[in-house]
Design a protein around this nucleic acid. Sequence first.
DNA 1: CCTACCGATCGGTAGG
DNA 2: CCTACCGATCGGTAGG
Lengths: 193, 193
Amino acid sequence: MLDTPRRREIEDAASALFRERGYVATSVRDIAHALDIRGPSLYAHVTSKEDVLWAIVDRAASRFERTADRALAADADPADRLAALVAAHISVITADPGEASVFVAEWRHLSGDRRQAILERRDAYERRFRDLIADGMADGTFALTDPAVAATFLLSALNGIAGWYRPEGRLAADRIADHFVDLAVRALTEVHR
Amino acid sequence: MLDTPRRREIEDAASALFRERGYVATSVRDIAHALDIRGPSLYAHVTSKEDVLWAIVDRAASRFERTADRALAADADPADRLAALVAAHISVITADPGEASVFVAEWRHLSGDRRQAILERRDAYERRFRDLIADGMADGTFALTDPAVAATFLLSALNGIAGWYRPEGRLAADRIADHFVDLAVRALTEVHR
DNA sequence: CCTACCGATCGGTAGG
DNA sequence: CCTACCGATCGGTAGG
């Protein structure tokens, strides 16, 4: 359906609720109530509940993809590229934790082709990590590991932020990112003595 | 309710379904169907759907706690203790990925006191990681970091395994654990040149 | 954007 | 362990 301001308000309210309670446990009436309207009124703006989920997940996926590509564009060594990729991923999460955590945790409630499409985009996204890790291994920057295992290790750690990050929390988003970049780069980097 | 073999079969079937589809998206009839009985027959063995969730989550929590305590009992240096703790955590996940992933992902659907109790046990469990990291920082084994941040980094990475691990997968549980231990210890360890 | 309402499904009970 | 059934709630439609 149309990409109106109201539509975006619906998706934002839905993101927050899906993050808190999960997609299935959130009713259409819950989303409407957050916007001070009645359940059926939502259908003037959306075609179905799953459409709202899809819009959020699709937008989050695009944001992750775009931001990662920008971060990887610079022509640096593997450690710096990894640092940039990790920081980019975290910035997407902290900029909109609702959207990000729906992408991370609720995509599996999509059905059919949409589910399949997101699965493929998730895999392609993860491949950026795998390939970068393999590059760093090949040139001796990174320790010997299984690139697929190391990539899921990192992505699980990063995506965890979507679950616990609160803008009003103890640490600012940048400080969290700094710590995570250090942890991620050290996790991969060979210790030369 | 009673701790009968049938009760355990119900919890195992429920774990697998909760892991696949989530607690809310799994109906009592779904669980019954997996055991080739009708929905209402389940209530001869359980008092409520949430009771089944609680039994699984409580058992998983106990297993994580017991296994971690055993792993930390040895009197070794922080790096070895961390390696033991990480390996222990992973062994609980790979021994029963259904139970573990329900603990990781579905506990929030518990209500009231049970939810509160699990929140506290999760925090106490995480504290084992935080304290160990702080110990290692104090004696110079570990790099300077925020122990709380580093602990969630590690636990998110480890818990991610519950989502993707399959016994018939490419890598045996032990090999996954070996890679994860290396990644985790390197992530924390100061690089001395 | 509303009220009125739909069929389907939910967790759970009664009573064997 | 079953059938029959309950009230509540679900996503969504009709018709303003």
